[in-house]
Design a protein around this nucleic acid. Structure first.
Lengths: 221, 221
DNA sequence: CCCTCAAACTAGCGGTGTAAGTTTTCATCC
DNA sequence: GGATGAAAACTTACACCGCTAGTTTGAGGG
């Protein structure tokens, strides 16, 4: 079946199908042949649309990053903006936990990741942070969100009481964590984010100037 | 060459060689055959000592985690303890950036990672934090350290000015980041960690009680 | 001395990413 | 309107991957 009258593949269709397969079966089990099969096509046909498997994964990762809301950054005080952005970022990753390990390896040349970095940096500078500080803050928050996504959605502890009880005196309850993983994750994220923002606010007042009072916030979550 | 008079392989030798290869050539290019070749042996011989390649990687990851200093936790006020632990943790990861992507996927069943979680949790509870809060704090700090290791040591931005200038108005200096990567990383880490600890101290005073004054610290770094 | 186990081997299976070359269709230009 | 060239599918094939199975032989214990 050479050169069908209507092209069977498009970049968008490939990316969407790849994301669905990764969501369903995990990152490791996505192969070019399996992806092609899901698209009703033979393996190497993909290379008419992407140069390499990595390019496909980049596009998938970018399509996830693109769902992060960065509009909030221009619309709110920097503290509220960072909070909303961080939650939205986290939400985007949580929706596709299996791509996080790939996504976490830096913005690279993926346009959506770069656009996000750009928006955050711009917002902080506009708020009065010195450029170098803005870079650090953006990076620190990315660290926290990415780390939270990695360390949590991907399994953490294992459901096996005896494994822990024997050797780790304080972890006798750790196996319970496996069950409450989601709430532990959210609690740790909320606590860490609040602490980070609190500390940044203090740093701002120390080095930049007095803070405007926060507008009443819509969602604390 | 069957059953040599002196065994050619030991678990320790395999782990050390695997770590060296990963450091040198990256995680992706470690194969059982290559590892075996570096050990002067054929591929499948490894399976006399480890059940699976993943088990080897677990052991490698654990050997890295084992270099983190957790002794400081018992010897200092919780704030100073967390600071030293986080820096030591970061240092351990920075020494072997290529294993971070594997390591970041949670403690799993790796004993050193579990011992570390145990020590941190125990120290926080001893300092007066409620158990649930202690869990959250340990997780949040792990998120931050792991995220920082991932997002930074592993490449981040690319050295190609034109790539950025065109589309991202605030990132016109971003290509410089590639050169100053190390200092940006350290700055972001220091800032984020200080902010986190500052925020946690405020949370402590709000929900637990007054804080003892900090002993004079040895290293601010 | 023999028996068993341990630790190396060889052979090979099914799977991987991707390069190379083939075929047919569509779009375009003389 | 027929030739031309690109596009998008195909088949074939290579080198490598993790791992299994079965084999060989030295070492150590009864």
């Amino acid at each position: 079946m050479p050169r069908p009258r209507q092209a069977l593949l498009t970049r968008d269709r490939i990316v969407a199908t790849a994301l669905a397969l990764i969501d369903a079966d995990g990152l490791a089990s996505l192969s070019t042949r399996r992806l092609a099969a899901a698209l009703g096509v033979q393996g190497p046909s993909l290379y008419n649309h992407f140069a390499t498997k990595g390019a496909i994964l980049d596009a998938v990762a970018d399509s996830v990053t693109a769902t992060v809301d960065t509009g909030c950054i221009a619309r709110h005080d920097w503290r509220e903006a960072l909070r909303r952005w961080a939650w939205s970022y986290r939400e985007a990753l949580a929706a596709h936990p299996n791509v996080v390990p790939y996504l976490a390896q830096g913005p690279g040349r993926r346009p959506a990741a770069l656009a996000m970095a750009d928006a955050v940096y711009g917002g902080l500078v506009r708020a009065g942070w010195p450029p170098a500080r803005a870079t650090h803050i953006g990076a620190a928050l990315r660290y926290f969100v990415a780390g939270s996504a990695l360390g949590s959605f991907a399994r953490g502890f294992v459901e096996d009481p005896e494994l822990y009880a024997a050797h780790y005196p304080h972890l006798t309850q750790a196996h319970r964590l496996a069950g409450h993983q989601r709430s532990v994750d959210e609690g740790a994220f909320a606590l860490g984010l609040d602490a980070l923002l609190h500390g940044l606010a203090a740093e701002y007042e120390r080095t930049v100037g007095p803070l405007a009072p926060l507008e009443p916030t819509g969602r604390a979550e």
